[in-house]
Design a protein around this nucleic acid. Structure first.
Lengths: 180, 180
DNA sequence: TTGAAAACTGGCCGATCGGTCAGGATGATG
DNA sequence: CATCATCCTGACCGATCGGCCAGTTTTCAA
C-alpha cells in the first residue's frame, strides 16, 4: 500500500516546516528552506499550500483542533469543574504539542492580525476564561500569566522529559490558580 | 542650552525604534521605518548606529544595565534574602520597562545567538537562579515559569495601570515561588 | 569670516523574500 | 499504446531588506 503522492509530499512539507519553525522561528524560515528540507522545490510548496501562512496553518492545525475540543468540552461543565478539567487537559496538551506551542509562542503578536487564525485566538481566550475560574480581572490576569509561563516552558523541547514537563505544569498551574 | 545635535538625533532614533519594535516586533521593523519615524534618513540611522542590531542594543541598554545591577546586588545577599529582593526588584523592573520587555520577548530565541547580548542573557540566567532560591531543577523551572509569565504580562502595555501590574506580578511570583 | 570637522543624505548595491507561470515528468485509465 | 489529470519544477518577477559611499549641508571654534 503506497500512500498517495499528494499526501506524502504535503505531510513531509508540514513535518519539516514544523521542525524549522521550531528551530528558527516562523519569520526566519523561508519557503526555500522548507522546500530544501522537504526535498522538493519552493514551487512545489506553493503548489500544495496557498502561501506561507497556509503552511503555518497546517502546522498548527492538529493542536488547534485539540484546543477547540477542549473548550467545547469545558463549556459543558460547571465553572469549578471546568477549571479543573482545563488545567489537566491543557497540561496534557503542553506535553503533547510542545513543539507546536514553541512555534506558536513567537507568533502570538502576529497571529492576532491574521483572519485565518481567528478561531484559534478566540479558543485561546475562551480557555483563559475557563482556567481563571471566574471573571474577576485579577483571576483572568493570573490565568494569562499561567498560560504565558506554560508557553515559555515549551521552549527548548527535549530539555525536559514528558513526566518532568507534566509535573512542572501541574504544580505551576495549581499554585497560580488554586492557592491554599 | 541646546543639546548637542548628536545626542538629540541618537535619542530620537532610539525612542522611535523602541516604539516601533513594541508595536510590530524587531523583525517587522525596517531601518527605513525607524528613520521615517525619527524624521531622518536611513543613512543617518546607520551613521549613528553600526547596523540594526546596534539600534536594538541601544533600546535594550537601560533595562540591561538595571538587570546587571539587580544581579550584582542580589549576589551580596543570603539565598533567601536574595530571592525576596529579586522578586521585589524584578516586579519593579517589569512595571518600569514594560515596553522594553515587550520588545525583548519576541527576541529571546534570536538574542541568544548574538554575541553582543551575551551579558544580558547571562544576567537573565543568574537572575533566574536567584529567583529560584535553590538549585533544585524544579525550583529553577518554576522560576523560569514565573519569568515567562511575567514577560507575557508585559504584552499590550497600557492595558494595565502600574499598580495593577505591580499587584499581578507580586501575587503571581509569590504564589509560584513562595507557596504556603 | 573662514575652514575643517561633524552631521546628514540620495542613490545605489547585492541578497533574499514570497509568489507566478508555462511547461516537463509521472502515473493511472481507457 | 494513447490520453489526460495530477504532480512537480526552473526561471523569472517585483518588492524590500540591510548596508555602503561619495558628496552636500550644518556647526562651531579659531
Amino acid at each position: 500500500m503506497t500512500t498517495p503522492a499528494r499526501e506524502r509530499t504535503r505531510h513531509e512539507i508540514v513535518r519539516q516546516a514544523m521542525r524549522l519553525f521550531q528551530d528558527r522561528g516562523y519569520g526566519a524560515v523561508s519557503l526555500q528552506d522548507i522546500a530544501s528540507a522537504a526535498g522538493c522545490s519552493k514551487a512545489t510548496v506553493l503548489y500544495h499550500f496557498n502561501g506561507k501562512p497556509a503552511v503555518l496553518a497546517a502546522v498548527l492545525e492538529p493542536a488547534g483542533a485539540d484546543l477547540a475540543e477542549l473548550v467545547a468540552a469545558a463549556e459543558q461543565l460547571a465553572p469549578d469543574e471546568a477549571q479543573e478539567y482545563t488545567i489537566g487537559r491543557f497540561t496534557e496538551m503542553a506535553v503533547h504539542y510542545r513543539g507546536v506551542i514553541d512555534v506558536l509562542q513567537e507568533l502570538i503578536p502576529v497571529i492576532e492580525e491574521m483572519p485565518e487564525f481567528a478561531q484559534l485566538v478566540a479558543d485561546g481566550i475562551r480557555m483563559q476564561r475557563f482556567m481563571a475560574g471566574s471573571d474577576e480581572p485579577l483571576e483572568l490576569d493570573l490565568a494569562g500569566f499561567a498560560i504565558n509561563g506554560l508557553l515559555g516552558a515549551c521552549r527548548r523541547p527535549g530539555e525536559r522529559t514528558d513526566d518532568e514537563m507534566r509535573r512542572l505544569c501541574d504544580i505551576a498551574l495549581r499554585r497560580l490558580l488554586r492557592p491554599n
